[in-house]
């Protein structure tokens, strides 16, 4: 990647991640080992999926507050469907991802055709999805295919986490959609110049729909992966992911203003955020002070990412 000013937020996010990883490895009681890599990757993967899910709506200039709800719904659904014979497992996964896509399409329809502000639309729909999840599974439990779970949370040749490979592959596919199709161009345009795009004949409504559907699918992937980790379903498991997915994309350098940015932001931010949590835990800070410390570290990390503005001589560029 060539250095350009527009890549700076992403590079700063990467620097934050690198710092966190170094500290993580130095304070971790077991140092760098295959097991440490595996557990780090697996703990960050669901948030990484959730953050990628958040990236699409943010690029359109919106926000998805229903990601937690989608994760809860798909996680409980996975605990009902993803077990048994290989055929049943595959069918279960397809249904789970399909439900995620349907949740996203519902959000997209509320926003493009219902003309509801994204924050309100997804706040409401998120409550609906969480409610459905509770309906499916009032108490934690259920069953997820152990073989598949072991494979998904395992390592390739004992050195490379499967989940990271999966994230990389899915990121590549999503990148094709975003950068190589007109629908993807429209997602960027929706967040920066919807009128210009409409005058050029782009269908912005379709792009916004596509963004929320992608959000739903990646939310479902997060729900599914949480199922692989816990081997059960829990209707309350999604709650922290809504806000954390937003925090992750911001640490990764994505502008909440929309219209610009990269899918990598979410992944980088998710790994950094999980790393920060783990570092605080290993360094022996009191567990009750964790949210406080995490919040403070978050502010410092995000400020660090916008450090360039301090030297900006043109005041007109500070807030834009």
């Amino acid at each position: 990647m060539k250095f350009r000013p527009r890549n700076l937020p992403l590079l700063l996010g990467t620097a934050v991640l690198a710092t966190v990883v170094l500290i993580y490895l130095s304070v971790h009681p077991r140092g760098l080992s295959s097991f440490v890599v595996q557990s780090y990757a697996n703990s960050a993967a669901p948030l990484a999926f959730a953050a990628i899910a958040q990236t699409f709506p943010v690029l359109t200039g919106g926000l998805d507050l229903s990601i937690g709800g989608i994760i809860a719904l798909t996680n409980t659904l996975a605990s009902e469907l993803v077990h048994g014979s290989p055929l049943e497992v595959i069918a279960g996964i397809v249904i789970v991802l399909g439900v995620g896509a349907a949740c996203g399409a519902f959000n997209g329809a509320l926003i493009t055709y219902g003309r509801i502000q994204p924050i309100i639309a997804t706040l409401a729909s998120g409550a609906i999805f969480s409610g459905l999840a509770l309906f499916i599974r009032p108490f934690p439990g259920g069953d997820v295919s152990v073989e598949l779970a072991d494979a998904a949370t395992g390592m390739i040749f004992a050195i490379f986490p499967v989940c990271v490979a999966a994230i990389a592959a899915l990121l590549w596919l999503a990148g094709l959609l975003l950068n190589r199709t007109l629908t993807g161009k429209g997602i960027f345009a929706a967040g920066s110049a919807p009128n210009a795009a409409t005058l050029s004949g782009l269908r912005i409504d379709r792009s916004i729909m596509a963004a929320y559907i992608m959000s739903g699918i990646f939310g479902a992937l997060a729900g599914l992966f949480l199922g692989f980790q816990t081997l059960s379903g829990d209707a309350t498991i999604g709650v922290p992911y809504t806000i954390n997915s937003i925090a992750a994309v911001v640490i990764g350098g994505l502008s909440l203003r929309g219209g610009r940015g990269s899918l990598l932001s979410g992944v980088i931010g998710a790994f950094a955020l999980r790393g920060i949590g783990a570092v605080l835990l290993f360094s022996g800070s009191p567990p009750l002070a964790q949210p406080l410390l995490e919040g403070m570290v978050l502010i410092v990390a995000v400020c660090a990412a916008s450090i360039t503005l301090v030297r900006q001589p043109n005041r007109l560029n500070v807030f834009s």
Partner: peptide, 30 residues
């Protein structure tokens, strides 16, 4: 040619140039 311009700021020059009719290759990808 619109007075208030019909360009999308955070897309590349080439993307904007062919925004209405992108040049497609394999699988209909741009």
């Amino acid at each position: 040619v619109f007075q208030e311009l019909s360009l999308v700021p955070h897309l590349s020059v080439e993307d904007n140039l062919f925004l209405s009719e992108p040049r497609r290759g394999l699988f209909g990808l741009i």
